[in-house]
Simulated scan of single mutants.
Amino acid sequence: MLGEYYEQIEAVGLNLTLAVLFILMGVAVHDVLKKNQVPMAGRFVAYLVLFLGAAGFIAKGIIQLFWQSTGVG
Rank of each mutant, 00 (worst) to 15 (best):
M1Q: 10
M1C: 07
M1P: 03
M1K: 08
L2V: 09
G3S: 13
G3L: 15
Y5P: 01
Y5N: 13
Y5M: 14
Y5E: 13
Y6M: 14
Y6W: 13
Y6A: 15
E7V: 10
E7K: 07
E7H: 10
Q8V: 06
I9S: 03
E10H: 08
A11K: 13
A11R: 14
A11F: 07
V12D: 01
G13I: 12
G13Y: 01
N15I: 14
N15V: 12
N15E: 12
L16D: 08
T17H: 02
T17M: 03
T17L: 06
L18I: 11
A19M: 10
A19N: 11
V20Q: 09
V20D: 06
V20R: 07
L21V: 12
F22C: 05
L24Q: 05
M25W: 09
G26I: 00
G26S: 12
V27W: 04
V27S: 09
A28D: 00
A28F: 09
A28P: 00
A28G: 06
V29G: 03
H30Y: 06
H30V: 01
H30M: 10
D31R: 15
D31T: 10
D31C: 13
V32P: 01
V32M: 07
L33T: 05
L33G: 09
L33P: 13
L33Q: 05
K34D: 00
K35S: 09
K35W: 07
N36E: 10
N36I: 08
N36F: 11
Q37T: 09
Q37E: 13
V38W: 03
V38H: 02
P39C: 06
P39I: 04
P39T: 03
P39F: 01
P39Q: 00
P39H: 05
M40S: 11
M40H: 11
A41N: 05
G42E: 03
G42K: 00
R43A: 00
R43H: 05
F44D: 00
V45M: 15
V45K: 12
V45Q: 08
V45L: 15
A46G: 01
A46T: 02
Y47I: 01
Y47L: 12
Y47M: 13
Y47V: 01
Y47P: 07
Y47F: 14
V49D: 00
V49K: 08
V49A: 14
L50V: 04
L50S: 07
F51H: 05
F51A: 15
F51M: 09
F51N: 06
L52T: 05
A54P: 00
A54S: 11
A54I: 01
A55I: 04
G56A: 14
G56R: 03
G56M: 14
G56N: 06
F57I: 06
I58A: 01
I58G: 00
I58K: 02
A59H: 03
A59C: 08
K60Q: 11
K60A: 10
G61A: 09
I62W: 02
I62H: 02
I62T: 05
I62P: 03
I63L: 10
I63S: 00
Q64P: 00
Q64A: 12
L65E: 02
L65Y: 08
L65I: 11
L65H: 02
F66P: 04
F66L: 12
W67N: 12
W67V: 07
Q68N: 10
Q68D: 11
S69I: 06
T70S: 11
T70D: 09
G71A: 01
G73A: 10
